[in-house]
Structures are given as C-alpha cells and as structure tokens.
Design a protein around this nucleic acid. Structure first.
Lengths: 226, 226
DNA sequence: ACCTGAACACCGTTCAAGT
DNA sequence: ACCTGAACACCGTTCAAGT
C-alpha cells in the first residue's frame, strides 16, 4: 500500500487545523496561505473544499458554538438552567478566546447562535414570563452575556499594538481612583456571578409583578364582565 | 498668492476623512492606500503624520467616544443620569456603526472608554451602592450596554458575505417559532429601554437591601458593643 | 519640513493546467 | 477528482530620494 506523507485534505481537517492556529497564534495569524503551509499543501488546494475564507470562519464558529449543546443541562429550576447555559457560554469563550469575538459578531447569521438564543427564550418561557416582556428580557440576557465575555476577552488579550497614551495628558478619573482597591481585587468570575444573580433576581421580580397583577384582575374583574 | 489644489495634510484632516470613508463604505473599505487616494496624496504621505494604521484607528475611536461627554448631563437623579449616559452611548453607536465594534474592542486601551467606565462608576457611587458590589454592578451595566449595542449593530449590518445556511438542515428552533410574532414586532428601542429599567430596578433593589441590613445592624448592635 | 515612488513581504482569489 | 502554480489586484510599511 502506498504510504502518504500526510492525511488527505478534508473539511474537518481544515477546520481543526485552522482553529488550532487561531487558538495558538491569534486570528490575525490565520491566512489561507499560512494555513496551507501548516497543512503542507498548495495554498489553493483549500479552495477545493471550502469556497472562501468567510466560509472557513463560519464553519469554525459553528464547531465552537455547537459545544454549548454537547452536554445537556440536568438542572431542573429555570434559574439553574440559565446559570448552567451562561456559565457554559463563558467557559467556551475563555477556551477559544481568539475566535469568540467573530462568533459573537455573527450572531444574526450563525445557526448555532440562533440556537443559543432559542435556548435562552425557552428558559424564560419555562420561568413563566409573560410574552409581552419575554423578547426584551431575552435581549437583555444575551446582551449581558456577550458584552461580559467580550469585556473579559479584551482585557485578557495582550495587545502589543496598543498605543501608549500620554499619561500626563490623561484626565483624572476620580471614581476609578476612588475604587482602585475594589477594582484591583475584583475577579471577572465575581462580576459574572454577580451579573447572573442580578439577572435572575430581576426576572423573579417581574414574575412577582405579573402574578400580583393577575391576582388583582381576578378580584376586580373588568367591566366587560358587568 | 499660490493657490493649492487641496488643504495641507494634517492629523485632523486625516482623521475626519477616514471616519467619513468608514461611515460611508464600511471599515474594510479603509486602507492606507485608498485613504491617500481620497486625500489626493501619495500613499506614504500619511505616515508623516501618523505612525501606522493602528494609531489612525485609535485616533478615530477617541474622537468618536469623546462625543459622549460633549454635552453634560443636566439630570439630577442617578437614575436619569444613567439613562442619559447609556442612551447617548447607543445613539453614538448608531451614528457611527462601522467604527463602534472596534472602539468597544479597545475598551481596555482607550482613554475615552475609561472615562465612560468612570462615569458609570460615578453614577453608582452617587446612587449610594456599597463599595462591595459597585465594581460588579458597573461591569454588569457596561456589559449590557456594549453587548446590546453590538447586537443591534450586527443586526443592522447588511452582511453580503453571509453564507446561506442550508435551511433544510436547520434545527427547528421551537421557542423562536413560538415567539415569532413578538420577535417580529419588537423594536430594539423597546428592548433597550426595557433593559435600562431592568438595570435601574435591580440597582434600586440592592440599595433597599443595603438600607435594610444597615437598619437591622443598628437595632441589634454587634456584641463588640456589649 | 514635507511629500514622493520604488520596493518588500505579504494578502484573497481566479483560472488554466497538470495527474 | 483532486491538487498545482502562475497571475491579478490588492494590502501595510520601510527607505532612500526628491523639493
């Protein structure tokens, strides 16, 4: 049998190799040509399997976000389900920090991200939120978790190109100065868990309001029921 | 006097022209070479005023985010101050949709973004939140507003490269289907205002908790005061 | 002091050709 | 069916040279 010097090219081999490069060296280190070199293949061979770079990235996004559903939640209360889902999202992000900003930016074209939104809405439906505020609540939850993850990733990213701003010209930031100690000791995990509880308490408050307004309308039926 | 065919090159002319190009044609339409062409100048003349493309973008970011503080808030309550600041942030984003994702990604290197965070913390201090939770609350507020703005911008961006996903293979998203009507009729402004109120109510709840725990500790002084 | 133009080391992608 | 290599139309940036 003829021995080959490398595996035959395939979509999954291309995806996996590209993701390795991105996780190791950053998104900007991935070019079609550098990827081909890593695969030990002519730069243009990749185009036989994948139409262009945008499609390559989309494929990688889907592989990464699919992990969100690889292990189903065993939680029973909607509160624990929401925590499970959002913590898992954050954990995926920190595991693939260089690909996640692009994934989040593709929210409105990615099937995996649509599934994530569907999962959030499902949890809110199960909680019993009225349809009137469920979409808005879902947007707030999604905005929080994506915004938080980007804040954390951007912080962790060492940015060698960051221009050194003239600290002499810098305005005094009095509140940051006042809270210097709290800012120094706080961990992202703290803030994330606080944010989770903040969201859940807010949703619970809305559920209570809804229940109360239903109780009131039962005691005082509308005049249509004269 | 000698008439010139164009204004002499300057940092502000470069910044303004670049921002115009980005707002009109998108971020990817801006290259040092295309910018030089727009300025009617040799491609390399720009490098005499600005060290590189990263510095050009940073300069543009600062000009955009500086608008956040151009008009000081006249609001008195911390609630109205917070609404004013976050609404203004969103309004800046929709005015410069193509530059904002990069600005948000530069949160940890941008003086303007640091000032925005300082302003949020200042409002929370004024509200009277205890130092123990003020940083976490600030992170949640910042995560919400940046995440929301990116969600909205990504939605509005027409993405010509978006790969058409095989809708036959698409999983059924039952909750999105169930809420189809609510999702169709909801506006981003609705969700944003809902999110603002959600944040404010949550902060108010924490203020009440804090006040209650203080009242309790007054009535029942610790045994150190035996 | 400010601008120019050639050159270097890259990109993504197309197309005709090879096996 | 799958891979190759030349070519096209771009990038950001450096450097020596011009006025």
């Amino acid at each position: 049998m003829a021995t080959k010097t490398r595996d035959p090219l395939s979509i999954s081999l291309i995806h996996n190799t590209a993701l390795e490069v991105i996780n190791r060296d950053g998104l900007e280190a991935l070019s079609m040509r550098s990827l081909a070199k890593t695969l030990n293949v002519d730069p243009m061979a990749i185009y036989h399997h994948i139409p262009n770079k945008a499609a390559l990235l989309s494929g990688i996004y889907e592989g990464v976000i699919a992990e969100l559903f690889a292990e189903p939640s065993l939680e029973t209360s909607w509160q624990d389900q929401l925590k499970f889902l959002l913590r898992r999202f954050r954990s995926l992000a920190t595991r693939s920090p260089n690909i996640f900003p692009g994934l989040i930016a593709s929210t409105h074209t990615s099937p995996g991200m649509a599934r994530a939104i569907d999962a959030i809405l499902g949890i809110l439906l199960e909680a019993g939120l009225p349809a009137k505020i469920i979409v808005q609540t879902g947007d707030a939850v999604f905005a929080f978790v994506t915004g938080f993850v980007l804040l954390e990733l951007n912080h962790n990213a060492v940015n060698p190109n960051a221009p050194a701003h003239d600290s002499a010209k810098a305005l005094p930031l009095e509140n940051i100065a006042r809270l210097r100690e709290e800012l120094r000791t706080n961990q992202f995990s703290n803030s994330f868990e606080f944010g989770l509880q903040f969201l859940i308490s807010g949703i619970e408050a809305n559920l209570l309001l809804e229940a109360a307004s239903k109780a009131v309308s039962k005691r005082k039926p509308r005049k249509s029921q004269a």
